[in-house]
């Protein structure tokens, strides 16, 4: 046993085994041609993305074109890398209705972890499959609300109905008081 070990050491047996492995691959690739590279020639070929791919984050709208976002800031607090800045405000003319007056995502810092999407109570955020967002100026990656909504429009052509039409029992969740039935007396 020990002798065999010695022989193996002296003849660099393990190294030779390793070298055999690498040369085998080479031979299969170049001479036998029964092996293919796993490389994807990226700009020419593109990978099929899984449905759960986490790409750029988008803001969504309801079917009537209004923002889903209620400006609740939960995404901001869920975000581990402080990507999101929400400046919320009251909707003009609809007292107590909250919305995001401004919404920024600094995608230079985004980890694409999707915690914001999970945190959103109204499903206003979604992850798209877009990923080709290289820019010459990194400030261009601080997306504002319009850009994020445009992303959503581009990637999610089918929009949801407004919340009050989906669930009558939460009808007064952030819809202001304009359309509510009068108080029973």
């Amino acid at each position: 046993m020990a002798v065999a070990q010695w022989v193996k050491t002296l003849t660099f047996y393990e190294i030779l085994v390793g070298m055999k492995a690498t040369i085998t691959v080479l031979i299969q690739r170049i001479i036998l041609r029964n092996r293919k590279a796993i490389t994807l020639q990226y700009p020419h070929e593109k990978r099929e993305l899984p449905g759960t791919y986490r790409g750029m984050i988008a803001l969504l709208r309801y079917d009537d074109g209004t923002d889903k976002c209620v400006g609740c800031d939960l995404c901001e607090s869920a975000c581990p890398s402080r990507v999101i800045t929400v400046i919320s405000s009251e909707v003009e003319g609809e007292p107590m209705k909250r919305y995001a007056k401004e919404y920024y995502m600094d995608m230079t810092r985004c980890l694409f972890c999707g915690l914001c999407v999970q945190a959103c109570p109204v499903d206003a955020l979604a992850m798209t499959t877009e990923y080709e967002w290289a820019k010459y100026n990194k400030r261009d990656l601080r997306l504002n609300k319009e850009q994020l909504l445009a992303l959503g429009d581009r990637n999610f052509p089918v929009r949801e109905k407004k919340l009050e039409f989906q669930h009558p029992n939460v009808a007064y969740f952030n819809i202001g008081h304009k359309n509510l039935p009068p108080k029973e007396s």
Binding site: P95, M96, P168, A171, Y172, G176, L180, K183
Partner: peptide
């Protein structure tokens, strides 16, 4: 409870306290 919730009509209360 499965009934719809109580809803008040919003009234203007004051400029500072809502």
């Amino acid at each position: 409870f499965s009934d719809t919730k109580r809803v008040y009509q919003k009234e203007f209360f004051s400029p500072l306290i809502e």
